[in-house]
Each structure stands twice: as structure tokens, then as C-alpha cells.
């Protein structure tokens, strides 16, 4: 075969190179966020104020007081404990998942197993609409509209509490859980269902005993990917959390998440200060954590596909 003309070879090499952009992008993200966090490990000046032990181990704020975890980066003696932020992130994520999972999985089961086709054509666009609502709009809705109702409903002391933010965050998680779960359920071959129905099982029994076990890896992946989405979500939590950096699990209080801390403080921080480096370290932690979560999720999606196609 003849070699293609020069122009084509240039274009084709361009195509080959461009395929690497996603990989290079991921590496650059890690390197350039990591670079700004690095002084916390190397610079004596930064370590004096915010060494790793100060970030993770309880510190004595003043002589004679018990050691505690505090996030007070702007004060005479800055305190950089990440615990309040991690607890905040985890508790709002838990509320979001408790709210989102039953709804998303139930809806996915209904659309794939029980709903007539015309109803499916209504439910799926509704979920797509929910997915299309920008997170800043959900944050606005939680802050302006939902907050007072939720406060009255649960009889809570604070208007901006974890329940409210968790529900709003759950709304952002539902579409991804639904989509992955619904894909998994519809990937189960029809012959499984026909076999079960032919043996006299009701549609519910078929769904419960045949389809759900067969789709389990995919449903598990849906949960993992939903978790990853919730951990990193910023705008909803930033707007509806009440910004209280307190190490308390109480759902009636406000809180402050890792992501929201970066969003609200990076704008005013002095470049090169320990505070600045800590904010980038939070970015590194979020990046690594969601990266691992996503890998795990995709592993389970792959397992689902192999299980159904019978390939090992």
C-alpha cells in the first residue's frame, strides 16, 4: 500500500496525539494541584504553621485547654484541623445518599421492570431534566426556598442545617445513580425474566429474585459513583451548608465541607501562605479520593458486563 500524502499523515498524527489529552489532563491536574500543596511537606515555614500533624491530630489551642480540632485559618494563631471539614463532608454525603438511593433505585427498578413503555418515556426525560438543573440552581433552591420548610418539618434549631443541604445534594446524586442502575437492570437479558415468569413468578418476584441479583454489580457501581459525585459537589454545599466548621455529627447543625472551604476561601487567601497550600492540599485529597472511587465504580461496571456476557 502507498504511503498517504503528507497532509494526511500530519492530520492522522494530530488525531493520535489528541487522544492523549485526557490522560495528560489528568496528570497535569494532579501535578499542578500537588505542586501548590507540596510546601506543606518541604518548606519549614509552612510546616511550622500547618504540618500534617496539625492538620490531622487534635491541637491544644491555648495553655490549659483540652486539645481540640479547629478550622480557623484566619486568626492570630491559625488552626488548620481538617477534621471538622471531613466530618461535614461525610455527614452531608450520608444524608444525601440515604435520601437518594431508595428513590433512584426504586425509580430505576420501576422504569426497567414494571412501567409500560409510554410511562418509561415520561420518567426518563424527568430524570434527564433533574440532571440538567445546574448545581448552583439546586443550591439556590435549597438556600432560598427549601430551608425554612425543612427546618419547620424536622423542628431544627438552625435554618441552614445538614438535612436541608443533604436533600439538595441528594437531588444532584439521583440522576447518576438512576442512570447507572437503570443501565444495569436493562442489561439483564430478557430470557432471564421470561424463564422466571414461565415458572409462575410474579413480576415483583422476578425483579427481586432474578433481575436484582443478576444486576447487583451494576447497582453497586451506581452506589459508588453516586458517592463519588456527592463527595466532590461544591455549589450546593457551599450555598446551603451554613458554613459552620464544627466537628459535630449532629444533623441539626450547619457544617462545612472540604469542597466548600476551597470555594469560599481561595479567593481571599494570600498566594504562597500556609493557608493557600492547605487549600490546594484539600484539592489533592478530593482529587485522589474521587479518582479511586471512580476506578472502583468502573471496575464494578466492568464486572457486570463480564458477568452478563459470560466472558471472564
Amino acid at each position: 500500500m502507498n504511503r498517504p500524502p503528507l497532509r494526511e499523515r500530519i492530520i492522522e498524527n494530530g488525531i493520535r496525539v489528541s487522544a492523549g489529552v485526557a490522560i495528560v489532563g489528568l496528570i497535569l491536574i494532579f501535578v499542578f494541584i500537588g505542586k501548590e500543596a507540596l510546601p506543606l511537606f518541604t518548606s519549614a515555614e509552612a510546616r511550622q504553621e500547618a504540618s500534617l500533624s496539625k492538620l490531622f491530630i487534635a491541637q491544644v489551642p491555648e495553655e490549659g485547654e483540652p486539645p481540640s480540632h479547629m478550622w480557623q485559618p484566619v486568626s492570630e494563631m491559625p488552626k488548620y484541623s481538617l477534621w471538622p471539614l471531613m466530618i461535614g463532608t461525610l455527614k452531608v454525603t450520608l444524608v444525601a445518599l440515604v435520601f437518594a438511593f431508595p428513590l433512584a433505585l426504586g425509580a430505576a427498578l420501576f422504569t426497567s421492570e414494571f412501567a409500560p413503555p409510554w410511562l418509561r418515556e415520561i420518567v426518563k426525560p424527568v430524570i434527564e431534566m433533574l440532571a440538567g438543573i445546574p448545581s448552583v440552581v439546586l443550591g439556590f433552591f435549597a438556600l432560598i426556598v427549601m430551608a425554612s420548610t425543612i427546618q419547620d418539618l424536622f423542628g431544627l434549631d438552625y435554618r441552614l442545617n445538614t438535612v436541608n443541604a443533604g436533600i439538595a445534594l441528594g437531588l444532584a446524586v439521583i440522576p447518576i445513580v438512576f442512570t447507572v442502575a437503570e443501565d444495569a437492570l436493562t442489561a439483564v437479558p430478557q430470557s432471564y425474566r421470561h424463564g422466571s415468569i414461565a415458572l409462575g413468578a410474579t413480576p415483583w418476584q422476578t425483579a427481586r429474585r432474578v433481575v436484582l441479583p443478576a444486576a447487583f454489580p451494576g447497582l453497586f457501581a451506581a452506589g459508588i459513583l453516586g458517592f463519588g459525585r456527592a463527595i466532590g459537589e461544591t455549589m450546593i454545599v457551599l450555598m446551603a451548608s451554613g458554613n459552620q466548621a464544627i466537628p459535630a455529627w449532629n444533623l441539626g447543625y450547619g457544617f462545612r465541607s472540604l469542597s466548600a472551604t476551597v470555594a469560599s476561601e481561595l479567593g481571599e487567601v494570600v498566594r504562597g501562605s500556609p493557608h493557600y497550600h492547605v487549600l490546594f492540599l484539600i484539592g489533592v485529597l478530593l482529587f485522589i479520593f474521587t479518582f479511586l472511587i471512580n476506578l472502583l465504580g468502573q471496575m464494578w461496571v466492568g464486572r457486570m458486563n463480564r458477568k452478563l456476557t459470560g466472558r471472564r
Partner: peptide, 29 residues
Amino acid sequence: HVVRLAIQNLAGVPAIVFGLFGLGFFIQF
């Protein structure tokens, strides 16, 4: 396989991390 994985993982990176990256890479570098 690696390229696909990278694209899927890129889709899962939190938006705020992209913000940090934009500042650290595009603006400062």
C-alpha cells in the same frame, strides 16, 4: 483501555478541583 478509563475518570473529577487546576496551571503556569 487506558484512554477510555482516563476519559471516564476525567468526568468524575469534582468541578472545584478543575477550578484549582485552572488557577494553578492556566493562570499561574
